[in-house]
Design a protein around this nucleic acid. Sequence first.
DNA 1: TTGTACGCGTTATCAG
DNA 2: CTGATAACGCGTACAA
Lengths: 337, 337
Amino acid sequence: MLKLPTLDDVAHAAGVSTATVSRCLNAPDMVRAPTRERVLRAVAELGYTPHFGGRALASNRTNTIGVVIPTMESAIFARGLQALQEALSDSGVTLLIATSHYDPAREAAQIRALLGRGVDGLILIGNARPPETYALLDAHGIPFVLMWSHQADCPRPSVGFDNRAAARAMAEKVLDMGHSRVAMIAGVTAWNDRAQGRVEGVRAALQARGLSLEPPLLIEAPYLLDDSTKATHALLALSPRPTAIICGNDVQAAGALRAAREAGLSAPKDLSVVGFDDIELAIAVDPPLTTVHVPHRRMGDDAARMLLTLIAGHKPPGNIVFETEIIMRGSLGPPPT
Amino acid sequence: MLKLPTLDDVAHAAGVSTATVSRCLNAPDMVRAPTRERVLRAVAELGYTPHFGGRALASNRTNTIGVVIPTMESAIFARGLQALQEALSDSGVTLLIATSHYDPAREAAQIRALLGRGVDGLILIGNARPPETYALLDAHGIPFVLMWSHQADCPRPSVGFDNRAAARAMAEKVLDMGHSRVAMIAGVTAWNDRAQGRVEGVRAALQARGLSLEPPLLIEAPYLLDDSTKATHALLALSPRPTAIICGNDVQAAGALRAAREAGLSAPKDLSVVGFDDIELAIAVDPPLTTVHVPHRRMGDDAARMLLTLIAGHKPPGNIVFETEIIMRGSLGPPPT
DNA sequence: TTGTACGCGTTATCAG
DNA sequence: CTGATAACGCGTACAA
């Protein structure tokens, strides 16, 4: 293991003090051009990279921000993450990724771990979490931004959209198609305001037309293909069976389509299925999914930008709310006659 | 911004020296039980977390390992990453994730960034990279493990499988079905030994039966749905057109199925399609994909374990090679008569 | 078994 | 514009 060159080595090689070298790297304008040139040459020659720990210790900043997402396995958060990462690396900031498996206790533990690593800020998904977690955040005084949600009554800085309204709009689309026996496969709603909002939105739309959304027509299932397939089979065993299934996300919708096939039903002729999120999977399945388009990239971009603003000590620029859009593809059609 | 509690604060609260507190955390056995208990209580009460930078500086270790994957957007690496992360966090190690977009220059830059952050080890995907990158690694003396590949002539520690052999076996399966006009949509092979190996394997199988694999029957495309759909349309325009398409991964296979549908062909009756990797997508599409199963989780597990061994200074335990397995599902059938 | 004291690499505050 | 020098929080010889 080679010993890495230190500030001192560079200073020695360039014939200046460590302070000057440090300045060349952090505030080049404060150094005369010829000196700076000499120093930078020495830096290049030695292949010097500042030691992260030393820097963190001395400056109390890490140029690192942490994000805790529920999971990496489903592709839901991948694109947003990538956007986050790109936006941040433009500012020389590194992204530290942790996962909570949709478990608030794990999320709190991950936040603690991230804080221990001295992250300058945090990005979290959604706003439903125990008060202790918010207490931890507030006590620490760390800047953070919530993604994927927008609720008017949540005073935290956030970049997201109204899951409830989007789901309601989708349900209305389904009803407008003429469906009157509508079921929903929802994500697990415990500590998940996105899943909750989507259920509420669908329920509101149904109730406005005199329909209700209760078990057995409402099933909660993890955001996984197999669980959704199983749930769909249960729904299809009902009599009369539903003519449309609204799913909590695209993965679940893909699972529903699969169950329909297994049951010998063809979508959308015998059964309509709609999803949510508009991930790549939506156009891979047959029929392609009618779904709610979510602006993954722009959410990531804007969340990064907002967090950097907060870290810089500026005022929270007000929450950002995106509009969603229903993408009509083949999986939604009129009910069978 | 609250000031975080330091070792000194804990020491003060527990009425001991900082050295004792440090020992309680790093080598509990060296401290008498009653003392330790008192200290740990203080730790808990103050919510103390060791300062990452300080620790890194003093111990020259970060308990962090870095991984550079090509991309997060396709789900290919997600499961392996999750496994890595879980295996590592059991050992109190944090995973730093960076992406290269399949670009060797970007990979080198990310490695440099990771080294600057003082990672204790690295995980890299595949073994095809410029000699300068290996030179960088060797000069630094950092332990690293390669994943997803196994080539007998590569002397680096690795945990993977033989992409060439797996692809060859798959191609033979296709040929055994009776296909004689076989095309391939490969991943971009530049600096990607997995993609290269898969092409070579398929080509070898075809050549053994007197067939060849050259353009226009061989097309390279990014591992994305749309590109593969486009490539498939080009293949379907050939005359005579291929009766089977072997794809570089499952995403491409899903794209091929989509193109077939668009062209009014039904799989596997009119066209057989096979994939590689066995990600969740494989069972979401219709027909479900016949594909090569890759042991994502075990690869992640073992790579983590091997790297930790290397970091601990033990001998490289020899490369780990996994067997792959062809999973027969619906997308491969006999050629149309 | 516990405490003292130094050094890790960097930034930031002062003088000059 | 540049150079000394004092922190920053922790691990670890060494001493007690």
